[in-house]
Amino acid sequence: MTTFYRRLPKFNYLAPDTLDEALSLLSRYKGKAMVIAGGTDIIPRLKRREIGAPEHVIDLKGIPGLDNIKYDVSGLSLGTLVTIGAVETSAIIGEKFSVLAQAAQSMASPQVRNRGTIAGNICNAVPSADSAPPLLTLGAKLKLVSQKGERTVGIEDFFTGPGQTALADDEILQEIQIPHPPPNSQGIYLKLTPRRAMDLAIVGVAAVVIPQDGVCQDIRIALGAVAPTPIRVRKAEAVLKGQKFDDALIEKAAKTAAGQSRPIDDHRASADYRRDMVEVLVKRAIKQAIRR
């Protein structure tokens, strides 16, 4: 970089009133438009010229209903405008989907949580996105819509690379759908950071466990910041599934998870440290989940 910008680049701003209008704009300006929800991630990246300026910014916030948190027989659904703060403070999420609330609470600052959205966190698809590991362990599905229709993609298939997703140019993530977790499941999100707040995860680990009489009925483990995308580590899950919990087995699962991670060296941490910490955090997350 040879110029440090303070101002945003030029773009046109569009504020559709309905989802149909948004989809029609997106289809018309395919490839030349960018959708924003909270904007807390996109605005700094545009300022720093990390991403090219779009011709059009399509702001979804004027569309009614997209900020709904819905809880019913089919589970939980989060509209694309549901903020991180809303998830953090939602009673039902705190009670039934605690792993997601924990992740929300760990993110950025109160100011950013008031503005930034869970959907935005997912669509920006940075490997360290805190909401991703919990959503992976909860088996979330993403409802993607375009003028052509809608489709549902499992969150695991959504992330395709750092900053890359299955979302097509003309699609919007309308809703994050999370099935009811089994009644006795327990979830934990652990995030490793040097400071107690405002840091990106060096490693993020979500574990959802269904313990019964000391046996692991089911378990899901997902990792953030240790691979090109957030990942689920099924081999590690398999170590424990159906087995009686014991320290050695938990240790083995944690080691397996570390083995499945593919971290990189960067200015925040080395790959070796990240891999080691996957092991520590997975072990802790499982143990804490069992204790809950």
Binding site: G39, I43, K47, V57, K61, G85
Partner: peptide, 27 residues
């Protein structure tokens, strides 16, 4: 910082604290 990392630009918008450097005036 202009990037939402320092909080010096915090104002209340409809009663909620936000970083005014991260919000478009149009929004």
């Amino acid at each position: 910082c202009g990037l939402g990392e320092c909080g010096a630009c915090t104002v209340l918008m409809d009663g909620q604290a936000i970083n005014s450097c991260l919000v478009l005036a149009a929004e």
